[in-house]
């Protein structure tokens, strides 16, 4: 019961939106697809849903090829950014829509739809036209509409993009509760790292159409395979450094800027190959506020000039004292 993308790629004209990528989604979990705006997240989602055709590669569900299967036969539900509630149907008719498409009777579909509305506290609005609902209510209807037909995979395209922070938090917990209860496999597109960290088990990072990382969410900060990911995650104490010695408070990563690959993981005092130009970030959250790029740059430059680690340690102690 899992989704597998094998060398999927897509371009519009001369613009490569999705570079050949492989992706495996483990069943029964919430996966985040994280990436900045314009990185190709929505296109990838549409390729999986069947709303766009890939230029190459295959999509499998349980080893069955799905690439050329029509959208409506894939049984992949989708919640769009703009909710897309059908304006000519009432709230309950919207929720019952997918059930009727499965061949259920009108009465049975509406009964089931009402139960779904009950789970998101919207039974009072069952017969309302959808334009009378608030943004948050519309989003809840959109979610239960997609969940009601029990899709094999649920695709969420930045479902909270248009909501205010407090409503967003409230809805996140409702979504999380509902999705966990139903053991639903979910691919959740977002550019909000906090949202991804709080709600998902696995995270996949897409940068400029390229899948840069796939793994468990909690290990993301321990792995950081590339500088682009570090930059996307907003590590603000990244500095360019050319030297032999580097002192870090607890732990740091060293990447080669040319290849964008991680080279070293530094712990406390470390020795770098002579003359290597690298980019360093300190990950110790305790000192992140101290180690702004400029401060760290100054420390490292002094260490380089004196070719000696001792003064740096003293400076560092002084900095900590000053801060205190």
């Amino acid at each position: 019961m899992s989704l597998q993308l094998d060398h999927i790629q897509k371009s519009y004209g001369t613009r490569n939106v999705i570079l050949p990528l492989n992706l495996h989604l483990l069943p029964g979990h919430i996966h985040a697809l994280l990436g900045p705006s314009g990185s190709g997240k929505t296109t990838l989602l549409k390729l999986i849903a069947g709303l766009e055709s890939p230029d190459g590669g295959e999509i499998y569900w349980d080893d069955v090829p799905m690439t050329h299967m029509p959208v409506h036969k894939r049984e992949f539900g989708m919640v769009f950014q703009e909710y897309a509630l059908f304006p000519h149907l009432s709230v309950i008719e919207n929720v019952a829509y997918g059930l009727k498409e499965k061949g259920w009777s009108s009465q049975r579909s509406k009964g089931d739809a009402m139960q779904w509305l009950q789970r998101v506290d919207l039974t009072f609005a069952a017969n309302y036209p959808v334009h009378l609902l608030s943004g948050g209510e519309q989003q809840r209807v959109a979610l239960v509409r997609a969940l009601a037909p029990k899709p094999r995979l649920l695709l969420l395209d930045e479902p909270f993009a248009h909501l205010d922070p407090s409503l967003k938090r409230q809805l996140q917990s409702i979504f999380y509760e509902l999705l966990s209860e139903t053991d639903q496999t979910v691919l959740w597109v977002t550019h909000d790292q906090q949202e991804a960290m709080q709600t998902t088990k696995y995270v996949h990072i897409l940068l400029s159409g390229c899948l840069m990382h796939s793994g468990e969410t909690h290990a993301l900060y321990q792995q950081l395979e590339s500088l682009s990911i570090a930059r996307f995650l907003g590590l603000n104490n990244i500095v360019q450094y050319r030297g032999q010695w580097v002192w870090v408070s607890a732990e740091a990563f060293v990447w080669d800027e040319k290849t964008d690959k991680r080279m070293y993981r530094l712990i406390e005092t470390s020795y770098l190959p002579n003359g290597l130009e690298v980019t360093v970030a300190d990950l110790d959250q305790q000192y992140v506020f101290l180690l702004s790029g400029e401060v760290l740059r100054q420390f490292l430059n002094q260490a380089w000039q004196r070719n000696d680690l001792l003064p740096l340690s003293i400076q560092w102690e002084r900095a900590k004292k000053l801060q205190a």
């Binding site: 709303l51 959208v71 409506h72 989708m78 897309a84 498409e101 997609a146 037909p149």
Partner: peptide
């Protein structure tokens, strides 16, 4: 807006059904 037709497709509507119902 094509998003209505796309949504209906992901909810299991065939092409004919999308034309008729949406």
């Amino acid at each position: 807006p094509t998003v209505y037709l796309n949504t209906a497709a992901t909810l299991g509507s065939s092409s004919l059904s999308r034309v008729k119902k949406i």
